[in-house]
Write a protein that binds this DNA or RNA. Structure first.
Length: 755
RNA sequence: GAGUCUAUAGCUCAGUUGGUUUAGAGCGCUUCAUUGACAUUGAAGAGGUCAGAGGUUCAAGUCCUCUUAGACUCACCA
């Protein structure tokens, strides 16, 4: 044995585990299975500390495998819709291109290839960290059967009346070119101007003077005596494009204390105003286009971006004496795109929604009655609160990277469908089908198709056919909106285990055996995005929860307590750390002394300290082997003669029994921090510093106790630091008879009776 | 506006249902040791009125209330 432990053999050890079939459980109906579905990483993402924290799952998996349970850890990769398209578009930008240079199919194919290159890298990195996943059951979110099943779910939701298309106000990012759900908007406190402007007989305060062209009312509080006389009347306002008329409405939404107690109502570009518009039957007048520029209704401001238009409008109003004052220190919250950080523009657009109330009900009940348990338990409240206030989910995204919504429109029946496509000369053409049909063939449109938008009342079919049921036309076109990524990943436990939405009786044996899975371990930041959606889909489709326990783990932050991100440049790369200190050292650092679901810092110091621990294990083992070699005639075994134990032996065996018991309960209770600390203390101090030191003065009678403690320690440590423990175990096997071939499948230690 | 969490040695943090810990670890610091498992070592040590105040209890870092400081989540305030 070398003088110190080298991590160079890790890859070989991993291979021998994989080859032996240890990662692949056999379905055994006499035994209760243990299963974890891996929170599928973005297939395009190189590994970061978040992935390294899957160590927690590996600990659970290895522990339960050693308990003899059929144990499944199912890995996967996510196409990660907007995330990936965003990264790809950045790459295009560097090459001087944009998404508008390609038809959607070409763009899709390019992204597909881009992801394929990185997908294997991601798997390789998981193996590097020693994760004992069943690679024979690996799934990628865009595999045909998985997509097929997801589409079947959409159709079922539609048939059950839980999917609808509606023109509501949605969160639209003009930079990404798509709408988002409420969860994808980050609200940021910002200081902006609050403009007080003349508005007919009023003065009113607004942050958005440029949307004035879309105003269709002005509102006051019904209790506000200052303005009672105007309510119900039509007033004339001097606009920059000439005078216009709006109605004065009374609505409780208006805060009398704020500004002047008068609000302009722009239903097309503000969520509150949109709702007010519904209450008062106001016209929705869109003045901002999906390109983020004002349209023709803005008169001479048409074509300007929102920011530019605001500047110009304010300047012009000041010149004309319409601006009363500007409060430049107004703090409020602005919605920004979680991806690109541009300001989210509330827009009215037809989108696909899922009705959530029906789906949320059983998911709330499952949390309340304990069908799903939360660890730490405080997340139960967070989860239930969110579910109880849930709003309908916008599942449509105007991007190409992802499965298209399985809905077909007949162009002949719906001539007002707006289409954007590249003609055969690669020029962008856009307009209503009815206006373009004489110039372009349906095939030319389909081949160059970039996107389409059907009016909200368009007719459609949810089954693909080659002709329209009404008019028999073959001019059918599939919805270009794709699914929100979470619509797919929300069904991940079902898809990967082979659940069949169309005919549940045809689901695979894996599904029957491993569903519901045992634990879902993930970071709390996707509790709503993912965990909540999986629960709802699981219950909706199978009447059963997808997992019995939700374990939320900690988040790794940098030394300043900030979230690690590439843009901040504060990322500690787990792979660099494994190269430097070995995988075991990194893994141990990720669980040693951490509290559940709180931020924690992983410093290089900490990893170095645990590299020393790993080395300590190596050298203690080396010493034990030296002792064995010292007594060549001794029968090398772990059989202890209990009548000949001295007090040292009894003490260490008693400590061993204690650590076996505490490690077992600590893992059962998800107290990984405590478990690892105790193991560290036991091995280094109780075993090495005390027992081994004293054993140096004793004879060959120490051999059985030394071996017993060492082998049991290796087993207890194996889930945490699999490589060094397996490595030592294999060396021991060369010296003595050990019936269990590998530590990974060896049995979990039990109390040793010696009294 | 609603909710959640955190505050323990110089630094980073453990301390699970209140009582064998006179409060622990790693890193750092001080002194000494060590040519045979390991300097990626061993022994000894310095360092904390467990944010502050009050309360419950035979007993509180651990439970309750308030105060202070900080972090986060959710929510449509023009």
């Amino acid at each position: 044995m070398d003088k110190s432990y080298s991590s160079a053999t890790e890859a070989d050890i991993y291979q021998s585990w994989e080859k032996s079939g240890a990662f692949t459980p056999k379905i055994d109906k006499t035994k209760k299975p243990y299963s974890i579905i891996l929170p599928l990483p973005n297939a395009n993402d190189p590994m970061h500390m978040g992935h390294a924290l899957f160590t927690i799952q590996d600990i659970l998996i290895r522990y339960h495998r050693m308990l003899g349970e059929p144990t499944l850890w199912l890995p996967g990769g996510d196409h990660a819709g907007i995330e990936t398209q965003f990264v790809f578009e950045k790459k295009l930008q560097k090459e001087g291109k944009s998404r508008f240079d390609f038809d959607r199919q070409t763009l899709y194919d390019m992204i597909w290839e881009f992801v394929e290159k990185n997908r294997t890298l991601n798997q390789f990195q998981m193996k590097k960290l020693g994760f004992s996943m069943d690679w024979t059951r690996y799934h990628y979110s865009l595999e045909t059967p998985i997509v097929k099943n997801v589409l079947a779910t959409f159709k079922k939701l539609y048939r059950d009346g839980l999917v609808y298309r509606s023109e509501k106000i949605v969160n639209y990012c003009t930079h990404c070119g798509t709408a988002f759900s409420n969860l994808e908007v980050d609200y940021v406190d910002e200081v902006t101007n609050l403009y007080y402007m003349k508005y007919g007989p009023f003065i009113l305060a607004t942050t958005r003077p440029e949307t004035k062209f879309g105003d269709t009312a002005v509102a006051v509080n019904p209790k506000d005596k200052r303005y009672t006389q105007y309510v119900g009347q039509e007033i004339t306002v001097d606009g920059l494009n000439g005078p216009f008329k709006v109605k004065v409405i009374a609505d409780d939404m208006v805060d009398m204390e704020f500004g002047t107690g008068v609000v302009k109502i722009t239903p097309a570009h503000d969520p509150n105003d949109f709702d007010a518009g519904l209450r008062h039957h106001l016209e929705v007048k869109k003045v901002i286009g999906f390109d983020g520029r004002l349209n023709e209704l803005a008169g001479k401001y048409a074509g300007l971006t929102v920011a530019k238009a605001r500047e110009q409008v304010v300047a012009d109003m000041q010149e004309k004496g319409m601006m009363v004052k500007i409060d430049s220190n107004y703090q409020h919250r602005i919605g920004r795109c979680y991806r690109c950080k541009h300001v989210i523009e509330p827009m009215v657009a037809p989108q696909w929604f899922v009705k959530m109330e029906t789906l949320a009900k059983p998911a709330i009940a499952a949390a309340k009655n304990g069908d799903i348990k939360f660890f730490p338990s405080r997340f139960k409240k967070t989860y239930i609160d969110w579910m109880e206030n849930i709003r309908d989910w916008n599942i449509s995204r105007q991007i190409v990277w992802g499965p298209r919504i399985p809905v077909w429109y007949c162009l002949e029946c719906n001539p007002r469908i707006k289409i954007n496509f590249l003609d055969k000369d690669k020029n962008i053409v856009s307009g209503f089908y009815g206006d373009l049909k004489d110039k372009y063939s349906v095939d030319e449109i389909k081949n160059g198709l970039q996107s389409m938008m059907a009016p909200v009342d368009a007719t459609f079919e949810v089954e693909e056919t080659d002709h329209c049921a009404k008019c028999s036309s073959h001019a059918l076109i599939q919805e270009t909106d794709t699914f929100d990524t979470w619509f797919l990943s929300g069904q991940w436990p079902l898809s990967t285990l082979g659940f069949n939405t169309e005919d549940p009786s045809k689901s695979s044996p894996d599904f029957a055996y491993f569903y519901p899975t045992t634990v879902m371990d993930t970071l709390w930041d996707i509790l709503f995005f993912w965990v909540a959606r999986m629960t709802m889909f699981g219950l909706y489709l199978t009447k059963d929860v997808p997992f019995k326990t939700v374990h939320l783990h900690s988040r790794v932050v940098d030394a300043k307590g900030q979230k690690m991100s590439k843009s901040k440049g504060n990322v500690v790369d787990p792979l660099v750390m494994t190269e430097k200190y070995g995988t075991d050292a990194l893994r141990f650092s990720l669980v040693y002394g951490i509290a559940p679901a709180s931020d924690f810092v992983v410093s290089e110091d900490k990893i170095r300290a645990h590299r020393n621990f790993v080395n300590k294990i190596w050298n203690a083992s080396r010493f034990v082997l030296m002792i064995i070699d010292k007594y060549p005639n001794t029968n090398i075994s772990t059989t202890i003669n209990f009548s000949k134990l001295n007090s040292d032996d009894k003490n260490i065996l008693e400590s061993l029994n204690k650590i076996i018991a505490s490690t077992t309960t600590n893992i059962d209770k998800y107290h990984f921090g405590q478990a690892s600390e105790n193991l560290y203390q036991f091995f280094w101090h109780d075993f090495c510093d005390l027992y081994i030191e004293n054993a140096k003065d004793r004879g060959e009678e120490v051999v059985p106790v030394l071996l017993t403690v060492l082998i049991n320690s290796l087993k207890l440590l194996h889930p945490f630091i699999p490589f060094v423990t397996e490595s030592v175990y294999q060396i021991l096997r060369e010296k003595m008879t050990l019936t269990e071939e590998q530590l990974i499948t060896a049995s979990w230690p039990k109390e040793i009776k010696f009294k």
